[in-house]
Amino acid sequence: MDKLLRSLHTLGALVMFIGQVARSAVTPPVYLGETLRMMNVLAKRCVIPVSLAVAPVGAVISLQGISIFKLFGAERMLSSFLGTAIFREYSPALASVMVAAQAGSSIAARIGTMKVRGQIDALAVMSVDPVRYVVVPGVLACVIVAPLLSVLTNLLGVFSGWVFAVPIGGIDHGAFMEHLTAQITPADLWIGLGKCSLFGLGVGLIAGYLGLNVGKGAADVGKAANDTVVSTIVLILLVDYAVSMALLGAGL
């Protein structure tokens, strides 16, 4: 009972926090320089891990796919399966999970460190709203960087799939390119980017909330970073599943 009350309290605080972030993001002053700086930091932190995560996926789909498609004599069609899998599912999910792991943890750790070392109070005493100055730039950066990363993972996933299908697997390059986009529509690409922005939003908000509400010491900062990663990854996978089901249901 006590636990339930506390969860409700946290949920209420989170909702209020989200309201404050939303209001701060659309009313002046907006700290654009901080936002650009955060985008730069986050993009640099994410680009290599996200590449390393998606490249093997494209390769594995091609490797596994060829042997199965061959049973039906349909290996020319392989790329349509690869394209669908990468563009619709793997690319947005992997990009988002990596944003959660890298960007989410670094935002939560940065804000948490500022909090335990009194820098958040210092900002407030200098009449700078910490939500505006440190939370909003992190949230905006996640919302923008996550879809940009998924563009990268789209290209890389397809490229590594191509390497294992065409030069190594012996599939005709023309056929590969012809079928690559056969099963996907521009809407799929937009939905993928939209999902990434949505997940980036969730990562930025949760990281900001847990960072600002960190406990008292260095160990609590680690905990805030860790909690951010775990909760956002679970959230991403659940919401991704729900969105995919809903879109399939809607015939998209």
Partner: peptide
């Protein structure tokens, strides 16, 4: 203007 006990400079 406030000087905090442990400085609170931005790292």
């Amino acid at each position: 203007g406030m000087l905090f006990q442990d400085g609170a400079l931005f790292d």
